[in-house]
Simulated assay, not measured.
Amino acid sequence: MAHRVTGVLIFFFLFVHVLDTSLVRVSPEAYDNVVATYKNPVVNLMEYGLVAAILFHALNGLRVIAVDFWSKGARYQRQMLWGVVGIWVVLMAGAFYPILQHTLRELFGS
């Protein structure tokens, strides 16, 4: 279920991304205004969520491929899921500061 949810979230991000990027062709000033509205802590947290969704979707996709194409995949699918979750947690912990540094500085000072 999480794989499907992350896939839908990534799709909606790509849809919005294409729309706001297409503003450059219509009006560069409008594009600049839209991009300026993205520079706030809420959107920065959403960026972290986007990274979380993409990373989980990618790692879990590899697990799904292994379950489908490896003869022992179905037998080890639960262990592989916990492996995906463990790797995801470690990578998300490593991505925490690089992605959220501007928000953390704004909230807690430099």
Rank of each mutant, 00 (worst) to 15 (best):
M1C: 15
T6S: 06
Y48C: 01
A30Q: 12
Q77F: 01
S22I: 07
A30F: 13
A52Y: 08
P98R: 02
V64S: 05
F96H: 13
L19R: 12
R63C: 07
G109Y: 00
A93M: 15
T6F: 02
V43E: 03
H102D: 14
W70G: 07
M1W: 15
T6E: 04
W82C: 11
D68V: 11
G86Y: 07
V18I: 11
E47W: 12
F56R: 01
A93F: 13
G73E: 03
A36R: 08
L100K: 01
L50C: 01
V34T: 02
V34E: 09
L107D: 06
I99F: 00
I54E: 03
N44R: 01
V89I: 07
M80H: 09
V43H: 05
E29I: 15
V90P: 06
S110Q: 13
F15Y: 08
G94S: 10
A30H: 14
H102Q: 10
V24I: 10
P41E: 03
Y48R: 00
L45R: 08
A74K: 14
M80F: 12
I65Q: 14
H102I: 07
G73Y: 05
R63E: 02
A36D: 06
F108H: 06
Y31M: 08
Y48N: 02
G49W: 00
D32V: 07
L62M: 14
V51S: 00
R78Y: 09
P28Y: 09
Y76Q: 05
N40C: 05
L50V: 08
N33G: 11
D20W: 10
F56S: 00
R78N: 15
V64E: 03
F108T: 06
V84K: 00
V16K: 06
Y38G: 02
V24Q: 15
I65S: 13
E47G: 12
V90C: 10
W88C: 02
L100H: 01
S71Q: 11
L100A: 04
G49L: 02
V35T: 15
L23I: 09
F11Y: 11
E29V: 15
G86E: 07
S22R: 14
V51W: 00
F56G: 00
V42K: 07
H57F: 10
W88H: 08
Y31C: 03
A52C: 13
V18T: 10
M92C: 02
L91E: 01
A74H: 13
F56V: 00
G73I: 04
A30I: 09
M92D: 04
V43N: 00
E106R: 05
T37E: 06
P98D: 03
Y48D: 06
H57G: 06
F96A: 07
A53I: 01
V43M: 04
A74V: 12
V85P: 02
I87G: 03
L55Y: 05
T6Q: 00
A30N: 08
K72D: 10
G83F: 05
G86A: 08
F108V: 06
E47N: 15
R4W: 11
A74C: 13
M80I: 12
I87P: 01
R25F: 12
V84Q: 00
A2R: 14
H17Y: 08
E47R: 11
F11E: 12
Y38E: 12
